[in-house]
């Protein structure tokens, strides 16, 4: 009886802890690594942050493709610096997830086994130089819309990593737009290259915001915890409203026959995403799913002996120094 009472007492204590936690979130107080947090909050964050980190890592591949083929020395430098930034962003994010007790090795193992997901957009191929423009302009544009609100997300290390990411990301979208603009002001072949790129990237980019709100069951809880600050459909609408005038400026046609300005809602109406394609790519049936993952697994496996050697050497050096200290 006494034991039971005690347990009940702990339950109420737990409940208050959870309530206290939610109250801090509601007051926009950041949660820091050592603070108490509900298990589900921790798990959701690890999943979200590591997915984000994996996206940066895998996201290096489609653009990395074109570093060796960039058409000028200036473009080559910019592209290399950009893809390198993505490595940096992946690293900032893995660091943030590590403050929650996840190890990078485990996160990578989950990526490599297919258990963890990354942004499906990187399972589409980059086929022409215009794709470097499209990835920067559209894909990074969409990413920024997702990411800027995350600078105010409730978990401190995640928010701080995102501030750093967003600061660096702003050049990415601009360089993408500049590539598109140069192509659109260039020869007819270049203009056609730009249009063909937009035709392929427009719809996959809209898919980046995730399933419709009505089919996104985790959204409510995530918004409550302020690890997500706008719904998928809100962001998708915002993106279309932002991008259509830019496409018009470039003289490009957005490949959506249903696209129309809606005066009443002061935004564009637009066609429905091909959700079958969306779910197919999520499930691993995109053109490049296997290649992308394979490339990551291979890099990791082929790097194993390098990582081992560095550790072995550090250990030898440490032992030598200790022996020296003892002798002295």
């Amino acid at each position: 009886m006494l034991v039971k009472l005690c347990l009940r007492g702990m339950e109420t204590l737990e409940l208050t802890q959870e309530e206290q936690f939610q109250a801090r979130i509601d007051a926009d107080v950041r949660i820091e690594p050592k603070d108490w947090m509900p298990d589900a909050y921790r798990k959701t964050l690890i999943r979200q942050i590591s997915q984000h980190a994996h996206s940066e890592l895998v996201g290096m591949l489609p653009e990395g493709n074109w570093i060796t083929r960039a058409p000028s020395l200036k473009r080559k430098s910019i592209l290399l610096a950009k893809v390198q930034d993505e490595a940096g962003h992946g690293l900032y994010l893995y660091s943030a997830a590590e403050t929650l007790g996840a190890s990078r090795d485990q996160m990578l193992a989950d990526l490599h086994s297919g258990k963890a997901k990354y942004s499906s957009i990187f399972n589409y191929p980059t086929l022409s130089w215009a794709d470097m423009g499209c990835v920067g302009w559209l894909v990074d544009g969409a990413a920024i819309l997702n990411q800027v609100p995350l600078c105010r997300t409730s978990y401190g290390p995640y928010a701080r990593a995102m501030v750093r990411v967003c600061k660096e990301e702003s050049f990415h979208q601009r360089q993408g737009f500049e590539i598109m603009q140069t192509l659109c002001e260039g020869s007819p072949e270049q203009k056609a290259m730009a249009q063909e790129g937009l035709n392929r990237w427009w719809w996959p980019t809209l898919m980046m915001f995730g399933p419709k709100d009505s089919e996104s069951p985790n959204t409510a809880q995530s918004m409550n915890w302020r690890i997500k600050r706008f719904t998928n459909d809100e962001l998708r609408q915002k993106f279309v409203d932002m991008m259509v005038p830019q496409a018009e400026f470039l003289g490009l046609t957005v490949p959506d026959p249903n696209l129309k300005w809606n005066e009443a809602k002061q935004g564009y109406d637009f066609g429905d995403v091909d959700w079958e394609e969306f779910w197919n790519v999520v499930k691993g049936n995109g053109l490049c799913n296997q290649e992308r993952l394979q490339a990551r697994v291979q890099a990791h496996e082929e790097g194993a002996w390098v990582r081992e050697a560095a550790l072995a050497h550090a250990e030898k050096r440490k032992q030598r120094e200790e022996a020296k200290a003892v002798a002295a």
């Binding site: 290096m60 290399l80 992946g90 890099a299 082929e302 790097g303 990582r307």
Partner: peptide, 13 residues
Amino acid sequence: SEWCGHGPILEQD
């Protein structure tokens, strides 16, 4: 630059 995205560990990439 051919290594970019394929290094043995992110830091060395």
